[in-house]
Computed example of a mutant assay.
Amino acid sequence: MPILNSHQRAILLMIIAPTMWSMAGVLTRHLDAARGFEITFWRSFFSATFVAGAMMMTLGWSKAVATVLAVGRLGVLSGLMWSVMFMCFMIALTKTTVANTLIVMSISPLLTAFLAWLFLKQRIAQRTWAAIIAAFIGILWMFVSSMSGVQGQHLVGMMIATAVPIAAAVNLIAIKRAGHGVDLIPAVLLGSVFSAAMMLPFAWPLQASLHDIVILAILGFFQLGLPCMLMVRAAKRLSAPEVSLLALLEVLLGPLWTWLGAGEVPARETLIGGAVVMLALVFNELAAMRTVAVARN
């Protein structure tokens, strides 16, 4: 008898994925010369390299190519949404603060729940709505003391950041609509390729040192490529709002890693808000597991 059922394994994958995503801030703090567009280019390039390598190792060359060609319109749409997320997140950070960017990104669960109801006719449990609202309030509290005024360049950055939760919500709906019949791991590859290709003209001439390249390779492999693949796998077993909620762990853990790895001490509001977010996530998942157990009995 397996230790974890399929739903629990999916939850575990969706805990690992945002934990890996959350390492972006602390790793980029240690870059020497690479900035903005170049970070996005290299991160996307190495993500594409990792996903392509993983597919060839597990499927073989011919089957990997066939899988990419078989993604269909939903796969291309998912790839485009991944590329929007990859690009707009980094571009937004060049225009406004991390706090402002994360505040905008935190609306993703609300958008995802609405689109899931609209396009997938998916009933959203009251506990999930409650968790979404509680998590949103917690995130607002986390960054209330450090939010910048939304004028000038900050407003531009926040408008760009708005594309991230919209793309994330559309991407999850595409993955859920594709169902189990279509493998959308290749969509992560397509998104990485699209992002790298679009960022290269803006990143040229490249300035990254060898030290930077190593860090950017780690970002591409383990902060982008691998966790995005894990999310696609987890999304097969979890509802779209549930995936989007668990993805908020990235917002929660990001300040923690920069505290431990870059000496940026979090404010009291960050700790209190983070506790609210964590309680909301734990409550939602425990309630979901209880519902599954009751249904089986």
Rank of each mutant, 00 (worst) to 15 (best):
M1A: 12
P2N: 13
N5I: 00
S6H: 09
H7S: 07
H7D: 07
Q8Y: 06
R9I: 05
R9V: 04
A10Q: 01
M14C: 03
I15G: 09
A17R: 00
G25H: 06
L27H: 08
L27Q: 01
R29D: 04
A33P: 02
F37L: 12
I39M: 08
I39P: 01
I39V: 14
F41R: 01
S47W: 01
S47Q: 02
A54N: 05
T58P: 12
G60W: 14
G60K: 13
A70E: 07
A70R: 12
A70I: 02
A70F: 04
A70V: 03
R73D: 05
R73V: 04
L77V: 15
L80G: 15
W82H: 11
S83E: 00
M85S: 07
F86P: 11
M87G: 00
F89D: 03
I91W: 08
A92M: 01
L93F: 10
T94P: 09
T97N: 12
V98E: 04
N100R: 01
I103W: 06
I103Q: 06
M105V: 09
S108M: 14
S108N: 15
L111K: 08
A113I: 06
F119P: 02
K121H: 12
Q122V: 09
I124V: 15
I124F: 15
I132A: 09
I133K: 14
F136M: 10
I139N: 02
I139A: 04
L140H: 10
S146P: 04
S148A: 13
S148T: 10
G149R: 15
G152W: 06
G152S: 10
Q153K: 10
H154V: 04
L155R: 05
V156F: 11
V156M: 14
I160A: 01
P165C: 07
I166Y: 06
I166P: 10
N171I: 04
L172Y: 05
I173K: 04
I173M: 06
I175V: 12
I175C: 08
R177A: 07
G181Q: 06
D183N: 10
D183Q: 05
I185R: 11
A187S: 07
V193A: 02
V193E: 00
F194K: 00
S195A: 09
A196F: 10
P205M: 00
H211R: 07
V214R: 11
V214W: 13
V214T: 14
G220Q: 01
G220E: 01
F222P: 04
L224G: 05
L224C: 08
L230N: 00
L230M: 01
L230W: 00
M231D: 07
M231H: 14
R233M: 14
L238F: 03
L238A: 05
A240D: 03
S244D: 11
A247K: 10
A247L: 15
L248C: 08
E250A: 02
V251T: 14
L252R: 08
G254N: 11
W259Y: 14
A262I: 02
G263C: 02
E264P: 08
E264G: 02
R268D: 12
E269M: 08
G273Y: 05
A275T: 09
V276L: 11
V277T: 09
L281D: 05
V282Q: 09
E285F: 10
T291Q: 14
V292R: 12
V294L: 15
A295H: 05
N297L: 15
